[in-house]
Design a protein around this nucleic acid. Sequence first.
DNA 1: TAGATTGTTAATCGATTAACAATC
DNA 2: TAGATTGTTAATCGATTAACAATC
Lengths: 227, 227
Amino acid sequence: MSRQNTPSLVVMKSTLSRLPLYYGYIDRLQAAGVEAVSSAMLAQHLNLNPVLVRKDLAQVSSVAGHPRTGFEVNQLLDDIGNYMGYNKMDEAILVGVGSMGRILLTNSKFEKFGLNIVVGFDKDPYLCGIQLGGKHILPMEKMESLVQRMGIRIGIITVPDDQAQEVCDQMVRCGIKAIWNFAFVPLKVPEDVLVKNENLPSSLAVLAHKLAMKSAVPSKINEITEN
Amino acid sequence: MSRQNTPSLVVMKSTLSRLPLYYGYIDRLQAAGVEAVSSAMLAQHLNLNPVLVRKDLAQVSSVAGHPRTGFEVNQLLDDIGNYMGYNKMDEAILVGVGSMGRILLTNSKFEKFGLNIVVGFDKDPYLCGIQLGGKHILPMEKMESLVQRMGIRIGIITVPDDQAQEVCDQMVRCGIKAIWNFAFVPLKVPEDVLVKNENLPSSLAVLAHKLAMKSAVPSKINEITEN
DNA sequence: TAGATTGTTAATCGATTAACAATC
DNA sequence: TAGATTGTTAATCGATTAACAATC
């Protein structure tokens, strides 16, 4: 029995990072009244290899593309949306209502991606009770019951670095299964909990470093696509 | 003549994304007074393969590690810092002093990574003249002369999506060579300009999607290391 | 039809992991 | 010395690219 490559349920990690790009672009096309889009067009506008785009789309599209015309915009947008879960709301909680926490709580773009940050928690009693972007801020003690009652599985950590692990532990105890971590500390979590670290300063530092490298050794390293 | 693999000047893309992690961890070790660190220790704490860590360190360390003890903490921290440019300040400008712009202007962590966001620009005349985190906010008209006078090559775009391309064009005209883009539009830039897109909502959406996949097909996909 | 576009199979490329000899 | 740790070479794995037949 030969080995099955590209099993249908598993999508390449990198495809996942490109789907939002396609989505954003196709969304604009739809708004502009365009009815069809080809892989070539997407590839050109997003600076990607057309074959790569075709493979990505083949994986998520529910219908085959039409030779000569490409994909139907509405259908494709819907398919990517379904695939990525943009079309059904996922709920998340946020802990740490500092400046980053506030941005996330009030950023309306999350909704477009199927995400609803339902409440913010903070240990500061002066913050508790107020609302931000229509979201309540609650004291930490309320976390467990709320998470369990609503069956929430995604948590966002925007507390200072030295409190991150503690908050993480609390989240895990509540039953959170995926954590988006803005603190710059590696979190210890059980095997079955996903962690995605976000570190803005180091993202910029990587960009700065690439620029420095590029000036030192002229080459054609250009758009940074990896995300 | 056989092909040279792993040319010394080019570092694997992914190494670059791990170096900040090493740096952060070793920095804490240094603060705690620890004098030596092994690849194995780093690997364990950061959830990475030890061989991978050894290869990464071999690429950036100026001295070989010592069998049995590992690497000297001060030296290694310095080497990674030098390699990534944390030890020499890079200057950047920021355009768009909204909530995200403010966070970036006032976040002191950038300094640690060798980054200094020197000024913010905004087209709102009411913002111009004030200071945030010790940084002046200036009107857009001042951009060109300041960028050229200071020889700045990094620009950060935190304006609304529909103004991003215009700001990008302005930056490019001023001589900016690397752009960190928070708007959700693909920027058109000349060949020699680097662009790094940041899209927080879609990062979270990818995490949510992975969680959904994992629940559907139990497997051992766990920590998300790619950054 | 001719040609643009699709989807697929094979080749290439690059990063990660495994195996192992060298070192203090 | 024995053993932990290093750095390197070879094997594996996975993603991207190239080549191409199929389709409207």
